Amino acid sequence: TTVKLGDIKVTFDNPEKAKKYAQKLAKIYQLTVHVHGDTIHVK
């Protein structure tokens, strides 16, 4: 599962960890989390 934020891409083996990371980023940057299959976009 890949978390994308602009040019930053972080890949996790564990989808749950990816989701938590995405939510953490979203909170920090006051953005929202969008899940598209294996990719989680923070924008």
Rank of each mutant, 00 (worst) to 15 (best):
F12V: 01
V10M: 10
V42Y: 03
K20Y: 08
H34Y: 13
Q23H: 11
L5Y: 13
V3D: 03
G37V: 04
L31Q: 03
T2F: 08
H41I: 15
A18M: 02
D13S: 13
Q30I: 04
H41D: 07
T11N: 08
K9C: 12
H41Q: 06
V10I: 14
V33G: 00
K27Y: 13
K27H: 11
A26Q: 05
T2K: 05
K17Q: 12
L5P: 02
I28L: 13
G37Q: 05
Y29K: 03
A18L: 03
V33W: 09
V35F: 12
G6M: 07
D38V: 06
H41P: 02
H34V: 14
D13P: 08
L5T: 03
K17V: 11
T11M: 12
V3I: 06
T32K: 08
L25R: 00
I40Q: 01
V42L: 15
V10Y: 11
G37H: 05
T2Y: 08
A26K: 04
G6V: 04
T1R: 03
H34R: 06
V33I: 13
V35C: 07
T2M: 07
I40T: 02
I8A: 05
T1Q: 04
L25G: 00
K4V: 15
E16H: 09
A22M: 04
G37E: 06
Q23R: 08
D38I: 07
F12Y: 02
V42M: 08
T1A: 06
Q30L: 07
V33H: 01
A26S: 06
A22T: 01
T32M: 09
G6L: 07
A18N: 00
D38Q: 09
T1I: 12
K20E: 12
T39P: 01
P15T: 06
D13F: 10
K4C: 15
A18R: 00
I28A: 08
H41M: 09
N14E: 07
H34A: 09
A18S: 01
L5S: 03
A22V: 06
V10R: 08
V10A: 04
L31K: 02
Q30N: 15
V42E: 01
L5M: 13
V10K: 09
F12C: 07
T2L: 06
D38M: 09
T2G: 03
T11G: 04
K43F: 14
Y21E: 02
Y21P: 00
K19N: 09
A22Y: 03
T11K: 11
H36R: 09
K20N: 09
T39D: 04
Y21I: 04
H36E: 15
K27C: 14
V35D: 08
T1H: 07
K9A: 12
Y29H: 07
K17F: 09
P15W: 14
A22R: 01
E16C: 14
V33S: 02
D38H: 10
H41V: 14
K27I: 10
G6C: 13
V42D: 01
G6Y: 09
K27N: 10
A18F: 03
T32C: 10
A18K: 00
V3K: 02
